[in-house]
């Protein structure tokens, strides 16, 4: 660990505001609350002696506004980049932080935000705080604790064991790597990307999961419902949906939305397994948001379960490790 560890912050000003507040009961996280969360993070980082924070200068100025109202020992500086309010901003910020050898990156967003960060952050570990809608990857956690956990990693008080490689899904079209998903890749019958969310059971064709979480919101919930024996392990899942199939299950497809889903088949995936998606025009949703329009019915889309995706800090474990290392002793 370097003498003056750098911590990155990527706060997505657009998370927590999409159509899922209308078609579902998604929580609304306004940017003022994100500023509050960042303040708590900065307090935690500052208290444990982190020297420098570099942040994505998002279009709202979340981190800038947070820092402006605080007296801090640590240096808080924007990354030298211009944000224009697109997902690529977060990817670019993650890439820059990785290039600067940041010890850890704090993210504020949902699965979608962390997916974009994961495209750029390489091996830099993430402390992911949920301010989005579907949140399997990030945690709903108090910002102070997230700041302390990130600080523990940055100052070397949290051992490698508190950071875990997360599985992810690699999406390829005609053999060419196209994108990744942290939790789920879903083919839908919807003809456009539009408002992005996926919430109508009739629209869903196939669901590929990077993991089978024990309790999850969104498409990932199907894994726990259908393959309970695989929960918590290193297996993923491949589920084919057919609304006229006799096998039907109830699943929370979105916050407050419990839907009946007809299931044609469901099986687990081992690390490295590849799924060839069924042919035909579709949109592919990644982590709950339609991202890829596939128009050519001859295109071969595949999804591969990759065991060594982004590295995620276990917040509880990192804070516990810091305590065990005596970081919180003041006398």
């Amino acid at each position: 660990m370097t003498a003056a560890p750098l911590v990155g912050i990527i706060a997505n000003p657009a998370s927590g505001k999409d159509i899922r507040r209308l078609i579902a009961l998604g929580s609304s996280i306004d940017n003022n609350e994100k500023i509050n969360i960042v303040r708590r993070m900065l307090a935690g980082l500052d208290a444990l002696g982190v020297a420098a924070v570099a942040y994505m200068p998002d279009t709202y100025g979340i981190v800038q506004r947070a820092a402006a109202a605080m007296t801090l020992r640590l240096d808080v500086s924007p990354l030298p980049m211009a944000c224009i309010g697109v997902p690529g901003d977060s990817e670019e910020a993650a890439r820059r932080l990785a290039d600067m050898d940041a010890a850890v990156i704090l993210t504020l967003g949902g699965d979608g935000t962390n997916r974009v960060v994961a495209r750029g952050c390489g091996a830099t570990p993430l402390v992911a705080v949920s301010t989005g809608t579907n949140n399997v990857f990030p945690r709903l956690v108090e910002g102070t604790l997230a700041g302390l956990a990130a600080a523990a990693v940055a100052i070397g008080a949290a051992p490698e064991a508190t950071i875990r490689r997360q599985p992810c899904l690699a999406i390829a079209i005609d053999g060419e790597r196209r994108d990744l998903a942290l939790i789920d890749a879903v083919t839908t019958r919807q003809g456009w990307i539009g408002a992005r969310a996926v919430w109508r059971p009739d629209d869903i064709r196939e669901v590929v999961l990077s993991r089978v979480p024990s309790a999850a919101i969104g498409l990932a919930s199907l894994g726990a419902v259908l393959l309970p024996e695989a929960r918590g392990g290193d297996t993923g899942a491949y589920i084919v949906v057919d609304q006229i199939a006799p096998h039907r299950v109830l699943a929370p497809l979105a916050p407050g939305v419990l839907s009946e889903i007809g299931i044609a088949s469901a099986r687990t995936l081992a690390p490295g397994d590849e799924v060839i998606l069924r042919p035909g025009p579709c949109t592919i949703a990644l982590d709950g948001e339609r991202e890829i329009e596939l128009l050519d019915d001859r295109a071969a889309a595949t999804v591969t379960l990759v065991p060594d995706g982004p590295r995620l800090v276990d917040i509880d474990a990192a804070v516990n490790a810091a305590a065990a290392a005596g970081v919180f002793r003041v006398a």
Partner: peptide
Amino acid sequence: ATDIANRAGAYEIPGVVVDGLDLFAVYE
């Protein structure tokens, strides 16, 4: 606060941000 949609919360009604340059996003 530059997301006008967030003001919906004060009146306990849904507030949604959508890409106004995307016909299909607005339409949906």
